[in-house]
Write a protein that binds this DNA or RNA. Structure first.
Lengths: 336, 336
DNA sequence: CTGAAAGCGCTAACAA
DNA sequence: TTGTTAGCGCTTTCAG
């Protein structure tokens, strides 16, 4: 492994000069810089991040804490984060809690506080009291993406408004018998988001003088399979079923669509379905939904953190990222 | 930031003892170890990974190179990798090339060779000649997951056998008019896998004396949307269309199913569809498919690398991970 | 514009 | 069982 000393020795300059030249710092003769750059390349010199991290205190890495990696929202945010990091020459370290809460505190203590990263991005999820405190007391910048976590700043869509817009779209089409396919639950992934969307559903219904039926609150766990199974029950009685279903996520909307297809229910003739997300499959499925852009959210948060690292002071920003209604073909006027 | 010296000073022992005690090395009195552990915890001491990495040469981090993060296969592999790393106390650094090939070499040189990781896992994708060489010459263990990369060892399913099994399932049901929805292309994500599956399709057809039609080779790009669009054309003529479609991935199979539904084609009555993957949606969709387990592949590869790091010598292993046919409800006997 | 030298916080012989 | 002593490979004052 060729080190900075090798480069310095081979040129007869000091390591300080090599370091300065390679990092583009001022106060190096252009001619020297050129020679250093050339020699470094020739020798295949690559600085050790451990050494420079130790010496400078900056690791050039950003950590992202996620509940799981392989779900649409989280991996999309990661993609957006990574895009910005790449541009800035930062590396991405992913701390996954891996679904259920095994060794959560091990992950927290061992990795996050280990001076391995310059900033931390936390994906929306349920944190324990202790974890929340740990994040708040981090000595480097941090931010939450997605649902809010009390006492920590965050960026994401306005979940209540997004849910309200979805429900009002259905109401605007004349629907009054509206069911809700809700998320949250088993994975402990996030407490707030599903609750906020549920609350917004109820509030919006109430605001329009519409009642919500307890048995029309179906549990879909933010997943296709669970939602399909729930919807099979929800929609089974042709004499008494909703004319529209508001789904707290697109994946759950797909489940409802699948169930409707199996039951021979025409969409949107007999049933309107709306989701939230604008998942990759939403467009080819023709799903009407409230679009959000997790990549944008991740990129925005990463940029924010990167900027703070650069200027060494907290930045001001609007917490809400946009959402918009995308009308496609799964919603339509209620049938008289 | 409390350092190892603080802990040592506060106990009146040497830093060496603290280091040994905390890392569970032998040769420390149990009583001493207990006191050290307690004090470390009390003072909130967390070792600096930069410092220990520099001193020991081990970073306790593993790198994973992916073409993109937010696709089913890649994020699932990541999940499996991460599970093993977590158990071993390793951190996960994700190097994403981010779809198209922007700054690819920057990523390679800046990050991968930077002594930030102890081992590298490369997700199947198309590497340039130079990149392949760089990976081969890495001075730490590396492995490819998914499709093979010439000159680098790898783990994954036997793609040819998987495709053959899928096609033979269709042939076994009496189908002779079989189309192929193929992947590969736009993203440059992987050259080998789509090609191998295509070749296996053709070989298997030939082996059974069946012809393949050029116009029945549809391009689905491994994606739902693209596949649906292709299938709409593939299946449009009721007088002359395949009775079965072999899809090189489940997402593409979903696209075919969607197209069939839109065209009013009964599955499996008029059309059989089989995929490869066993995507999360496959079961609720009732899709017959060749199951592979990317999480298992990731975990297996990570374990292999971790083991080699531990024993400091290359391990022997069977390169192929299992695949199995999962029969559900999208395939059936050809209609006379 | 360049060099010398003192660490950054830990680990790993080697002694004791 | 514990302590001493060198570094690991960089960055960063401070001089020159």
């Amino acid at each position: 492994m060729t080190s900075i000393d090798d480069v310095a020795a081979s040129l007869g300059v000091s390591t300080a000069t090599v370091s300065r030249a390679l990092r583009g710092l001022p106060g190096v003769a252009e001619e020297t810089r050129a020679r250093v750059t050339a020699t470094a390349k020739e020798l295949g010199y690559v600085p050790s991040s451990a050494a420079s991290g130790l010496a400078s205190g900056r690791t050039m890495a950003l950590g992202v804490l996620v509940p799981v990696i392989d779900r649409w929202y989280f991996s999309a945010v990661l993609e957006g984060v990574d895009r910005q990091l790449r541009a800035a020459g930062y590396d991405l370290i992913v701390f996954s809690l891996g679904g259920a809460g095994v060794n959560r505190d091990r992950v927290f203590h061992r990795s996050i506080l280990r001076k391995r990263i310059d900033a931390l991005l936390v994906m929306c999820m349920h944190l324990t009291e202790e974890e929340r405190k740990a994040v708040q007391q981090l000595e480097y910048p941090s931010i939450v993406v997605g649902g809010a976590v009390e006492g920590v700043r965050h960026v994401g869509i306005d979940d209540a408004a997004a849910a309200r817009d979805a429900v009002e779209h259905l109401i605007g089409l004349g629907h009054t018998r509206i069911a809700h396919m809700r998320g949250g639950g088993s994975f402990d992934i996030d407490f707030e988001v599903p609750r906020i969307r549920e609350q917004a559903f109820q509030d919006t219904m109430a605001a329009h003088g519409l009642g919500v039926r307890e048995d029309w609150s179906a549990f879909g766990d933010f997943r296709f399979a669970t939602s399909r199974a729930s919807a099979l029950t929800l929609l089974e009685d042709p004499e008494d079923r909703p004319t529209a279903v508001f789904c707290s996520s697109d994946e759950m909307a797909f489940g409802v669509l699948k169930a409707a297809a199996e039951l021979g229910i025409d969409v949107p003739g007999e049933l309107s379905v709306i989701g939230i997300d604008d998942h990759e499959f939403a467009e080819p499925m023709g799903l009407t939904t409230i679009r959000q852009d997790p990549e944008d959210q991740g990129a925005f948060a990463a940029d924010l953190l990167l900027g703070e690292l650069l200027r060494n002071q907290p930045a001001d920003y609007p917490p809400s990222r946009p959402h918009t209604l995308v009308e496609r073909w799964t919603t339509g006027p209620v049938r008289p």
